[in-house]
Design a protein around this nucleic acid. Sequence first.
DNA 1: TTGAAAGCGCTAACAG
DNA 2: CTGTTAGCGCTTTCAA
Lengths: 336, 336
Amino acid sequence: MNQQRPTKKTTIYDLAELVGTSASAVSAVLNGNWKKRRISAQLAEKITRIAEEQGYALNMQASLLRREKSKIVGMIVPKYDNRYFGSIVETFEIMARERGLFPIITCTLRDPELEVEAARTMLSYQCEWLISTGATDPDRITDICVTSGARSLNLDLPGSKAPSIISDNFAGARELTRRTLTNCQTRLGTLTPLLFVGGRASDHNTAERVRGFRQAHADLQIAVDESHILTCGYAPEKAVSALEALAKAEGALPRGMFVNSTISLEGVMRWIKVSHHFDGNAPIIGCFDWDPFVALLGQDIEMVRQDVKGMLQSVFSIIDTGHAPSARVELPPIFD
Amino acid sequence: MNQQRPTKKTTIYDLAELVGTSASAVSAVLNGNWKKRRISAQLAEKITRIAEEQGYALNMQASLLRREKSKIVGMIVPKYDNRYFGSIVETFEIMARERGLFPIITCTLRDPELEVEAARTMLSYQCEWLISTGATDPDRITDICVTSGARSLNLDLPGSKAPSIISDNFAGARELTRRTLTNCQTRLGTLTPLLFVGGRASDHNTAERVRGFRQAHADLQIAVDESHILTCGYAPEKAVSALEALAKAEGALPRGMFVNSTISLEGVMRWIKVSHHFDGNAPIIGCFDWDPFVALLGQDIEMVRQDVKGMLQSVFSIIDTGHAPSARVELPPIFD
DNA sequence: TTGAAAGCGCTAACAG
DNA sequence: CTGTTAGCGCTTTCAA
């Protein structure tokens, strides 16, 4: 258990002195710019060795202060409590590192104030790109970025002031609804409208999914019951209370459901379990999101997976080229 | 769509000129140190207003370079693909922000090389504390920290060179095993030894859990079958092949299982599904980890939850006080 | 009450 | 091939 107190850190000046050369030579060698400075291989080798021996670590603060580009890319994410955002973050980190960028990520708990505070903080750290994932107010973040000379991108939830890369929610929801309706027909023998649960009516994705949901019903000439569109928010508890209230008001609930995210699905499954409403005749569900345990353990649950890899490839192609597409990028989600 | 190119950033000198004062006054006011510098409320107000108007943003790199403390706390985490690490990261961020620290997190995919590279990068950014969560080689990271004058802490997986905060894996596994054995007896009417699946024999936690597993069997005077301890790694595919191989070698597998993490459980459930090995008589499982969908949808699956909140409270009490406990901190996991 | 000035550690001209 | 120098933007004495 060997925790020392701050030993004074080694700088390139210390190294220069030790080697008997100048700080600029050290800097050039350590940055790999020594071919263009035509430093002798011998000197370079010596510098590298001594740096190693001394456990030298670059002071990024100083380096960044002097440099023009920080290579820092920031990402804001609402939560880490589901596979979707988890894989976004993981993939983002991997892809950023692949191109020598330094990713910094922070979760903002769907709190608009925290979002802007986090954005400001990241900009203080000189991040060059800020990716807002599922942000409640992406345009506000873009505004902040613009005044700091940083570029911004919206992922998952679109904004109007920066390029947006999202899923094709309309087409995805339409297909998921179609499949779920078909599943209902197969299992129950009748073609009845579904219940829509979860998400915020005000957010773009939910609106689009509701639109796809309606379209799929219209495609089969089934009337949608307006009181059966429960855009009650994402949190599990919200879904629980919404279902509880609807059951109280209407009695028997539809056997078929469209659930908007695994977060909401958690609430739906919880309510199904505690309410015993469906005991003996389990509902048939389509979920706009994916989770391995639901796939493995769920009965009659169809899922769509958003194309995380594809979305991040779009993100990084914009970052790589600096050239943003003029239109919103919409990627088809994936059905197994 | 309004993405400007880098407008030159406003500095405190620009502000000073605009206000008609000095950079030091601006700095003091913007840092809230103006009472001790006895700057007039008027000047302070004017500076604040102009800064606002200009959309001034502190250059943290410059600030940090000059300052002695960075207030940056780093965390290394293996993956974001399960609820356990997700909640560790989320809680870490929240608690760090509560005390005015700046959290930076990175996932290292259980890759030892990436771990040390990530550690070095974080130290370059002058992070003062580095929390290694589930690191494959925590002592190596501590060594790196020591040479940079940073402090390190181990979370989840212990090391020998820095304070470690972990779950009481032995006691947790013993109790989980006891419960699972009891469940087996209740459901099947016989007291038979369990199969242990997942984790690495070389890692401390797995070793302790195996020890608890053995102890619980011993407590009930049941002999453990050595070929039934499959510490095959964490990845789902590893569990799949281990079960496949065992089934091929031995025929019928035990109905009762101890599964070491939800990651491995994913593989176990997958194999159960595709192999049809247990069709009609589902296994009785205890899982050292927690997931909401397993809790909701799983049949006969007992789970333990590690005390994430408690562990991070220990972490931050060390960071807050700077005073590390002499012994390893072990927190009891939580049974529902 | 306020300003001037030094310097954190590094990079990138510019001189040799 | 290599060293000297001038800052990057900020904080913090030290003087006034």
